[in-house]
Write a protein that binds this DNA or RNA. Structure first.
Length: 475
RNA sequence: GGCGCCAUAGCCAAGUGGCAAGGCAGAGGUCUGCAAAACCUUUAACCCCGGUUCGAAUCCGGGUGGCGCCUCCA
C-alpha cells in the first residue's frame, strides 16, 4: 500500500508517486522574517517537518527546501520602527527562527534559501515572462497578466469571473485587470532596492517562491506545502508564474495545513490573542507543544486552549513514563542483580505485538499523514508494554522490543527522548538516600522512610517502589 | 456577494456505508506499609429535519450553529 495524500489541486486523496523513484522534491513556504513566529506558523513547520520525516522513514530521499522571505513590506516597517536596517531585522529573526524551530525538533531543510540571494534569477525569470507576453511593464512596475494564463484559478477552484464579482479587490489604475499581481515593485524612496531592466525596485512576494523552487529543485517538483490561507492568492500566483515560464506542470502535489485558532477564534492582533511559539516554549517542554500540534490531523483546524495543552502534557507524560519504566526494568535486570536470575523471556511475543503496533502506525501515516491515529497506535504500544511490565518474568528481550518500537515511532514524529531537567541533587546522593530509606523500611520505620521520600520530592525527585526495587526520576 | 471548510462523550480527537479508535478527566477494583506508577472493569457521543439504501455518523437535499479565503496573515 502506498502513501495516500490529499492534493489541494485535485481536491482528492491520491496515491503518492514521485517524479523520480525514491526521491522527493519538497518545497515548504517559510516565514517572513520580521518577528518571532507564532503558533500558527509553528503548526505549519511541525506538520510539514513531520511529513518530511515520514517520507524519509518510508525510504525516500527528500530534498526539502524552505525559504526565508527576507524582503517585504513588514520587514521594512519593522526596521523603520526599530530604527535599524532591513538586513539586521531579517538576520536577527532568521536566527530566532532557528532557535524556536530547533527546540521544536524541526529538522533543518536541505537548503534554506533567502529571497535576497536570488535577485539575479528573479530578474531573469521576470524578464522571460515579459518577453513571452505573460507580464507587462508599467513604469518601474511589472505585473503578471492573469488573463494570459488559461489555468488561472485551478488551485483555489475559483474563476477570474468569480473574483471580479468580488468587490474587495483593490482597483489599481496601473493594472490591466484587478486580478493581475506585481512581479517587480518600483522602489520607494529610502527602501532597499536592486537595479533591474525596469528600474530600481524589489521583487513581489509571489515570484520569490517560484524562482527559489526552480533554482533548488527544478521547474517540476513533487510537493509544495503551506498554510491554507496561502492557497489564494500566493500559491495560485506561483502556479501561474511557474507554468507560464516553464510551459509544463509546476507542482504535482499541493499540501495545505489547517488553521490554528485560539479559543475558537482566529489569531489576530486586533483581538490581542496572538500566541508566539517562543512564549509557549518558555513555559512548557518543547515536545509537549509538538505533541499538541500533532494531536489533530494537519488539514483540520486546531484550537489552542490552555486545557488542551494541559491534556497534551498528560498524554506526553504517559508515554514518557512508559519509556522510563521500561528503562528501569532493564537496569534492574542488569547482570549481577539477584532479580535477573528469575527471568526467562525470549521476547518473541513482545516483538510480534510491537510489529503489529508499527503496522497500525504506518497505516495511519500512509493515510494522508494521520498523526492523530498514529499517536493512538503509540498509546496502544504503551498499553501493551505496560502490561508486559506487570509481569515480573518479562525481561531484556521484551523490554528492548518495546523500547525500540516506541523510540522509532516517536522519532518519526520528531518527539524524542524526554529532556533532562535541571539537576539540583546528584544521582549519587539520590542513590544514597534511597539506600537509607530502604534500610528504614526494612526496620519498618515508615515515618523516616516517608520523610526521605518527601525530601527528595521537594528537590524534584520522585521515588516509586516496584518489585524490582525503588526507581526514581527527576520531575 | 463569490469560493470553501467544520459540527462525534465533561474536554481533546480519529473514523467517513455494516457492532463508534485513542488520549485527558470521572467511578470502582487489583497491587502497595503508604504513596506513585501500572493493569483490569466502568460511566459517557455521531447538531436538527427530510431523502437514497437491507443498512447512514459516513452519501444526497434543506436547515441551524461555528470558521476560513476572496486584503503580501501559516
Amino acid at each position: 500500500m502506498s502513501i495516500q495524500l490529499y492534493n489541494t489541486l485535485s481536491g482528492k486523496k491520491e496515491p503518492f508517486v514521485p517524479l523520480h523513484p525514491g526521491k522527493v522534491r519538497f518545497y515548504a513556504c517559510g516565514p517572513t522574517v520580521y518577528n518571532l513566529f507564532h503558533l500558527g506558523n509553528g503548526r505549519m513547520f511541525v506538520a510539514f517537518d513531520t511529513i518530511r520525516r515520514y517520507l524519509e522513514y518510508r525510504g525516500y530521499q527528500v530534498d526539502y527546501v524552505q525559504n526565508f522571505t527576507d524582503v517585504d513590506d513588514k520587514i521594512i516597517q519593522r526596521a523603520n520602527a526599530d530604527g535599524t536596517g532591513v538586513r539586521e531585522i531579517a538576520n536577527r529573526y532568521i536566527e530566532e527562527y532557528f532557535r524556536d524551530a530547533d527546540a521544536l525538533g524541526i529538522k533543518r531543510a536541505t537548503v534554506h534559501p533567502r529571497a535576497t540571494e536570488s535577485i539575479p534569477e528573479i530578474i531573469r525569470f521576470i524578464g522571460d515572462l515579459v518577453t513571452t507576453g505573460y507580464a507587462y511593464v508599467r513604469g518601474s512596475n511589472v505585473y503578471f497578466d492573469t488573463s494570459a494564463f488559461p489555468g488561472y484559478g485551478k488551485l483555489s477552484h475559483r474563476s477570474v469571473e468569480d473574483m471580479r464579482s468580488g468587490f474587495r479587490i483593490d482597483v489599481n489604475e496601473e493594472k490591466q485587470d484587478p486580478a493581475d499581481f506585481a512581479l517587480w515593485k518600483a522602489a520607494k524612496p529610502g527602501e532597499e532596492s536592486w537595479p533591474s531592466p525596469w528600474g530600481e525596485g524589489r521583487p513581489g512576494w509571489h515570484i520569490e517562491c517560484s524562482v527559489m523552487s526552480s533554482k533548488y529543485l527544478g521547474d517540476e517538483i513533487d510537493i509544495h506545502a503551506g498554510g491554507q490561507d496561502l492557497i489564494f492568492p500566493h500559491h495560485e500566483n506561483e502556479i501561474a508564474q511557474s507554468e507560464a515560464h516553464s510551459g509544463h506542470q509546476f507542482v504535482h502535489y499541493w499540501l495545505h495545513n489547517g488553521p490554528l485558532n485560539i479559543n475558537g477564534e482566529k489569531m489576530s492582533k486586533s483581538l490581542g490573542n496572538f500566541i508566539m511559539t517562543r512564549d509557549l516554549l518558555l513555559n512548557r517542554p518543547a515536545r509537549v507543544i509538538r505533541f499538541f500540534l500533532l494531536s489533530a490531523h494537519y488539514r483540520h483546524p486546531l484550537n489552542y486552549t490552555d486545557e488542551g495543552l494541559e491534556q497534551a502534557v498528560q498524554g506526553m507524560e504517559r508515554i514518557d513514563r512508559c519509556l522510563r519504566n521500561l528503562e528501569f526494568r532493564q537496569a534492574a535486570l542488569h547482570p549481577g542483580l539477584e532479580f535477573s536470575q528469575r527471568v526467562g523471556d525470549d521476547g518473541t511475543h513482545a516483538q510480534q505485538r510491537a510489529d503489529g503496533v508499527r503496522s497500525e502506525f504506518v497505516a495511519a501515516m500512509d493515510d494522508d499523514f494521520n498523526t492523530a491515529d498514529a499517536i493512538a497506535a503509540i498509546f496502544e504500544g504503551v498499553r501493551l508494554a505496560n502490561t508486559d511490565l506487570e509481569d515480573a518474568r518479562v525481561g531484556l528481550a521484551s523490554t528492548q522490543a518495546w523500547l525500540n518500537l516506541l523510540r522509532e515511532l516517536l522519532s518519526i514524529l520528531g518527539l524524542h527522548e524526554p529532556e533532562l531537567a535541571a539537576q539540583s541533587v546528584s544521582s549519587a546522593d539520590i542513590e544514597a538516600m534511597i539506600a537509607q530509606r530502604e534500610a528504614a523500611r526494612k526496620r519498618r520505620d515508615f515515618a523516616a522512610a516517608d520523610k526521605l521520600r518527601q525530601d527528595l520530592e521537594n528537590q524534584g525527585v520522585i521515588l516509586e517502589d516496584t518489585l524490582q526495587g525503588t526507581r526514581w526520576f527527576r520531575k
